[in-house]
Nucleic acid binder design. Structure first.
Lengths: 167, 167
DNA sequence: GAGGTAGGTTCCCTGAAGGAACTCGATGCG
DNA sequence: CGCATCGAGTTCCTTCAGGGAACCTACCTC
């Protein structure tokens, strides 16, 4: 499907993938550690890890030979997926954390402050949210009309702008 | 689980949810339109919509009575989930779009430029990525030790900083 | 040489997804 | 008046992916 959401979903859409990534990110990198910390079945964990390695999100590294022992680390591609996780965390903190407050906090190295991520525009640097944009067909859009209505984005005028203005 | 990723995943982790949200976002708001555009089974679509409404991500609005006809629109909570979708799109464009280029483009209202989202720090406004932060336990962290290793984030020193520095 | 540890496989079984057909109320059409 | 149609779902059946638990294979330690 010519849709970057669906393609991203192909990589991390399976139930456990984001939690596996999070745990690798925070330093839980070995099979048994991951299995124990997540409570995931060993079978499914093995499948997911194989898949994430194949997708080049994780890499499998031998950290001890004889006996061969492996650990999983993030690639660049995987590290950028963690940015996505940070945005998920932000949404979860805002809408589902409840009165207890967020379970974890993030300190930004550059400024030393406890903060969170905010989407900004790569062009002007200002805040950028789904209500602030027009959606236009791009070069990689679905080829013929009618072949894949789901991959094709609706007309610009019928897009989010008028939609949200109306609601 | 005291983890905002898992909690966010509870809401949109099911296979079709992000694509449903995207379609509602771009203006496909009715049951049959959604079903046709996604190729999803009617049963699953009905379940997902019910769930998303219950989670207050979508709202079911009667746009015609006699016969009663309904459409689904985004709530504020749902609109902010679309920000998450934009980040997913960005990752998909960067890593999976291939030579055809991105299927859709986004124009930022504020500046009029074709651009994409970048995570920035809410405190200092500078770029903020998963490699730039320390992870600290927050007020809503899992209560007792040992009760939920998965919800508890590892020690700070064992976190992403040293991890990525080592790789 | 008994037991432990890391990193998986194999087998079975259940629950969720898909497909197609059916329902229900209203409304247009001849 | 009677029939078809449309939007918005339900219902039933079947198949496939996820979970659990046990097993396997090197190697290392006591």
């Amino acid at each position: 499907m010519a849709c970057s959401i669906a393609r991203t979903w192909d990589v991390i859409g399976e139930p456990w993938s984001p939690l596996i990534l999070r745990n690798v990110y925070v330093g839980i990198r070995r099979f048994d550690q991951l299995q124990a910390s997540l409570g995931i079945s060993r079978k499914v964990l093995a499948e997911r890890l194989r898949w994430l390695v194949e997708a080049e999100v994780l890499q499998r590294r031998e950290y001890a030979s004889r006996p061969a022992r492996y650990e999983y680390t993030l690639t660049q591609k995987g590290m950028e997926l963690c940015d996505l996780l940070l945005v998920m965390v932000r949404w979860g903190d805002r809408w589902t954390a409840g009165e207890a407050g967020p379970p974890v906090l993030y300190r930004h190295h550059a400024c030393g402050e406890i903060s969170h991520v905010e989407p900004h525009c790569s062009a002007c640097g200002g805040p950028m949210s789904a209500t602030d944009i027009d959606v236009l067909p791009g070069p990689g859009a679905a080829p013929g009309p009618g072949s894949d209505a789901g991959g094709q984005i609706a007309v610009v005028g019928d897009g989010p702008t008028s939609a949200t203005a109306a609601s």
